[in-house]
Amino acid sequence: MNVNWFALAEVLVVGLGTVACVVILFATGIRGMSQRVVARAQGGTGSAGLTVAVSCFSACSLIVLYGLYLIVSH
């Protein structure tokens, strides 16, 4: 019997890291959108919030595309 504990630990660490990145990016993107909505409601442009949101969601999309690439190449 040869249980690959290393691979298992690797799955945990890589999974944890990836998910933390995605969640932080996505949540920050949502905060940006929310910031924009609030700013516009108060008469501002909200462009700062929009910039944050766009960059965060773009980074998230890249991770999703990489996930798609992993599925297709497997």
Binding site: N4, A7, L8, E10, V11, V14, G15, T18, V19, V22, G67, L70, I71, H74
Partner: peptide, 13 residues
């Protein structure tokens, strides 16, 4: 779930 499934199948576990 998506991250764990993809990571594990990519790393062969």
């Amino acid at each position: 779930s998506a991250a764990v499934i993809l990571t594990s199948s990519h790393l062969g576990f």
